Simulated assay, not measured.
Amino acid sequence: MSFNGQSFNGIHHVTAISGPARRNLAFYAEVLGLRLVKKTVNFDDPGTYHLYFGDAAGAPGTILTFFPWEHAAPGRLGVGQTQETVFRVPEGSLGWWAHRFVEKGVPHETITRRFGESVLAFKDPDGMRLALAGMPGIGDEPAWNGGGVPPEHAIRGFHGVSLLVEAGDKTGAILTDVFGYAKTATEGTVTRYAVPGNPVGGIVDIRAAGGFLPGREGAGSVHHVAFRAADDAAQEAMVARLREHHGQRVTEQRDRNYFRSVYFREPGGILFEIATDVPGFAVDEPAESLGQALKLPAQYEAQRARIEAVLPALD
């Protein structure tokens, strides 16, 4: 899908579940060096934070968000879940990151090769599966200078995600027909789908894992993966294709303040979202102070004092 000649294909954001909010913030801001671009609440559970991490501007394709529940039970990876969330870093930075993970006590694996790319897999404090992919030609892209991570090694948004499903054909058909991906390669049981031009968030790997146990959602689990739509019209076109070509049931549009969303459960059982690029995260606070103040949707503003009293301190 394109708008005024600009591509808007790829991942918009990934939302996951974590344990304590303070620990989550410390890891993603101080270890990975991401910017906290929005501090708000779960619109469906205002007694819980919704934290958004990304690049300096909170650009689509860079945003990892969390619902942090203080006493969340651990999830269990299985069929019908996102297996891994992968960030992009400059090609020569993986050694620096491996050393940082040793220093910070972050569980990680040795650097391996996947689809011709060098990848460093690791886990966050809740056991969420993450990885860094070393990518050529991205060293000049803007980078957030946070958490003691030098800009030359900083994360440059998402590389992509890997999905664990019983069989991947129907999921792949939605990626290609609705979201603009193309099947590009296969390694073993993993099929890679990519957006032409290698944009941020342009990779989805589908692992066919027939016979595996279904997953159990909890801390360390991805709740949903959101794909980009330039605007409402682009989103409506995607919804029409989902319904007419793939028989999908899609929710009504929901206003999330920073984007507008629809949701559906893709054939492999994973919750997908389509999120608009507009209006963006600077709609209710200046870009230079993103993430500093607690932002509430209008329907909860009258309850601010009660909500702030319930939410755990992050400082």
Score class of each variant (00 low, 15 high):
206 I>V: 15
186 T>L: 09
192 R>L: 08
156 R>W: 09
188 G>A: 05
155 I>M: 05
157 G>F: 10
193 Y>H: 12
183 K>F: 08
170 K>Y: 12
184 T>P: 01
195 V>F: 03
206 I>E: 04
184 T>Y: 05
202 G>A: 09
166 E>F: 06
198 N>G: 08
164 L>A: 03
207 R>A: 13
167 A>Q: 13
206 I>C: 08
192 R>A: 11
201 G>Y: 01
184 T>S: 13
194 A>C: 01
167 A>F: 06
193 Y>F: 15
199 P>Q: 08
160 G>R: 04
164 L>C: 05
175 L>T: 13
172 G>V: 15
170 K>G: 08
157 G>W: 11
175 L>A: 10
188 G>N: 11
175 L>V: 12
201 G>A: 04
179 F>P: 02
158 F>H: 00
171 T>C: 15
170 K>V: 09
189 T>G: 00
205 D>Y: 07
164 L>V: 03
172 G>T: 14
179 F>C: 06
157 G>D: 02
198 N>Q: 14
178 V>D: 05
164 L>R: 08
200 V>A: 07
191 T>Q: 12
188 G>D: 06
194 A>M: 00
207 R>D: 08
182 A>H: 05
181 Y>A: 11
172 G>E: 14
174 I>M: 14
157 G>P: 06
180 G>A: 06
204 V>N: 03
162 S>H: 00
192 R>C: 08
173 A>F: 13
192 R>K: 00
155 I>D: 05
176 T>D: 10
163 L>A: 00
187 E>I: 05
160 G>F: 05
201 G>V: 07
209 A>S: 12
185 A>K: 09
204 V>M: 01
182 A>W: 02
163 L>C: 10
207 R>S: 10
199 P>R: 07
198 N>D: 15
207 R>K: 15
207 R>Y: 14
198 N>T: 15
188 G>P: 00
187 E>S: 14
176 T>K: 13
201 G>H: 09
185 A>L: 11
201 G>C: 06
168 G>P: 03
187 E>P: 06
171 T>A: 13
202 G>I: 02
205 D>V: 00
170 K>S: 14
183 K>D: 00
186 T>G: 07
162 S>L: 03
199 P>I: 05
178 V>T: 04
163 L>D: 03
191 T>I: 10
185 A>H: 12
190 V>A: 01
189 T>V: 04
184 T>L: 07
196 P>Q: 04
170 K>E: 15
210 G>F: 10
166 E>M: 02
187 E>R: 12
196 P>R: 13
168 G>D: 04
169 D>P: 01
202 G>Y: 00
196 P>H: 00
189 T>H: 01
198 N>R: 12
182 A>T: 08
180 G>M: 10
181 Y>V: 01
209 A>F: 07
